[in-house]
Design a binder for these strands. Sequence first.
DNA 1: TGCCGCTGCGACAAAATGTCGCATGGTCAT
DNA 2: ATGACCATGCGACATTTTGTCGCAGCGGCA
Lengths: 196, 196
Amino acid sequence: MPEFRYNNTLSAHDMIEDISELPTLLIVDDDEIFCDVLAKAMTKRGFSVEITHNIEDALTKAETATPEYAIVDLKLDSESGLVLVEKLKALDPGTRIVMLTGYASVATAVEAIKLGATHYLAKPVDADEIMAAFDRTSGEADTPISASPLSVGRLEWEYIQRILTENDNNISVTARILNMHRRTLQRKLAKKPHRN
Amino acid sequence: MPEFRYNNTLSAHDMIEDISELPTLLIVDDDEIFCDVLAKAMTKRGFSVEITHNIEDALTKAETATPEYAIVDLKLDSESGLVLVEKLKALDPGTRIVMLTGYASVATAVEAIKLGATHYLAKPVDADEIMAAFDRTSGEADTPISASPLSVGRLEWEYIQRILTENDNNISVTARILNMHRRTLQRKLAKKPHRN
DNA sequence: TGCCGCTGCGACAAAATGTCGCATGGTCAT
DNA sequence: ATGACCATGCGACATTTTGTCGCAGCGGCA
């Protein structure tokens, strides 16, 4: 893992440093504003940043110059960022990828990590959290055993997400399996997961 | 991955088969009743099952005979099952481990998978789900819906019952923990055990 | 006895869900 | 290309399920 700076400021010397020495970072998120803000923050932290808003563009860029780091949104319009994680890892297993999502669920977290993501964070995130995530070596078994029960709403959300991913995100099939109306499932999915 | 049977019945021939041919499975959970029930179910599915209720015993058993499969609860009294996952993987990277938890969280799910767990499931689970989890290779392998997922209503019922008993059947307390109105909880409890 | 907290239940407004329908877009075999 | 078929997003409206209040009864406990 290359060295990079954790402080938010660059000295005059850093400013004129050869750009090729900076670690490369690819940001993939369909929210342009979010991308811009994040890009700025990560640039300040010493990365050479590239932005794309969909999987195609991301792959095109990655194929010519595989990034050392990547930040990928789980929901890219209609596509799933998961497939991108897989492909980036295929191009270079050493790539460190942080997966972001506004709709965090255990099911997608499991998939993301299994596909090779370095970490999985729920929005809103700040740049420092992402830095810390890149840093993370492997599992830190010191994760607190917070035994606070989930709310029923949250439980339902997690369960739905699980069945949904198990069925290739097919809403109609999932609705049938869960014995609920497709319309209702749609509405539930449109909402963000309830906080605890 | 060794062959094993998915049906719940064994033929006479199976019955007298050399036990050493059965895949070995180690169950680690501090809930004895749960262990017994699960052990029985997994034995029926063709495993040679061992049970332990804490990390120490689990390691002792694993060191003399490393299991091919393991089911580990996240919360083992005061300890975290995560460290056990790490150690089992260290003993034999090929071990397939399914992590169970009563209170699923994204954070622990991420840790579990990074430490090498094959899958992460929230209770209540049934044996078939665990079988499917062992099966799962990596990213969204088109898992053909194993059995019959619970309806959301049923899942909610199970969950409420669990939290309720954990709180000495105190409806008010349970309602607060679950972030639902006492009146609503009353009404839900008044209804039948919601079939599938 | 007075203070609290839990419980069951009626009533009514607010929110979620069940139901229909329709237009769009993708897949597939003809 | 064309039609059969299915998934999806979403509007509209009837039906159900909630959230909320309030009240009365029932133990503990100082």
